[in-house]
């Protein structure tokens, strides 16, 4: 079974971003970039499926700038077999990314596509569901457990009230939640080997996909700052403040 994994290059999760002075976006100059944490979990899940003998080939794909090759090489070092970069210098919306991934799905015909549930930059939580709609595949979003058996996959999903398990006919789309697995680190020999694995570069034009958007970002601002309050000296003082000053209990 072929598994396709989509990964995104994003600002590292430890970086506290700053809004640009002209309110055109956030300042990403000289900021550490990494693979989106949910995408790391997606890669790990695919590698585990291969280790179990369920997956036979793992293709990793990213839509983004030339530098996203770094994240693809990381995925290759973690165990993916080959990589595809659909190169676009523009910041694309989730729908545009889903359309490009659909073109890659048509080309590669994977049985299972695994994506992160959301990217920690745009926080959209859309791409996997949109890819599922465009390809006509069922979806198991926010997965905490993935079990392939025969021509279907059981996905346990993190939902607001607990957990839900659904059965999906393959081919299917899975998006990962935090507890699905704990991603491994790439070993140095594997990092060296990854440099020799194939990495194909495509463009939206070559895939015949238009990336125009119905959304336009007018401005990006810093959130209203919350000023630090006071330190109380005792529990008694805290209770007094909550009762008589804030009046919340």
């Amino acid at each position: 079974m072929k598994v396709l994994v989509a990964v995104k290059r994003v600002v590292d999760y430890n970086v506290k971003v700053r809004v640009k002075a002209d309110n055109s976006g956030v300042d990403l100059a000289n900021v550490k970039m990494s693979m989106n944490p949910f995408c790391e979990i997606a890669v790990e899940e695919a590698v585990r499926l291969k280790e179990k003998g369920v997956a036979t080939e793992i293709v990793v794909v990213s839509i983004g700038p030339t530098t996203a090759q770094e994240q693809l090489r990381t995925a290759l070092a973690l165990g993916a077999d080959r990589a595809i970069l659909v190169e676009s210098a523009d910041e694309l919306t989730s729908l545009a990314v889903a359309k490009l991934l659909k073109a890659v799905v048509d080309k590669e015909q994977p049985q299972l596509v695994i994506l992160g549930k959301q990217a920690i930059d745009s926080d959209n939580n859309q791409t996997g569901q949109m890819l599922a709609a465009l390809s006509g595949y069922p979806q198991g979003t926010f997965a905490s457990k993935v079990e392939v058996s025969g021509d279907s996959v059981n996905v346990t999903r993190e939902i607001d009230a607990g957990a839900q398990t659904v059965s999906l006919k393959l081919p299917a789309i899975v998006t990962t939640d935090l507890r699905l697995n704990e991603p491994r680190y790439a070993s140095l020999p594997n990092i060296m080997k990854a440099k020799k694995k194939p990495l194909e570069v495509l463009t939206p034009d070559a895939l015949g996909v238009s990336t125009v958007s119905t959304n336009k970002t007018l401005k990006v601002e810093a959130p209203a700052a919350r000023s630090a309050g006071i330190k109380v000296k005792s529990v008694a003082e805290l209770v007094d403040k909550l009762k008589n000053e804030a009046k919340v209990i």
């Binding site: 956030v26 745009s122 926080d123 970002t217 007018l218 990006v220 959130p223």
Partner: peptide, 10 residues
């Protein structure tokens, strides 16, 4: 966006 570290007007 960015875990609430920026607010985007769309």
């Amino acid at each position: 966006i960015y875990a609430g570290n920026a607010i985007s007007t769309v």
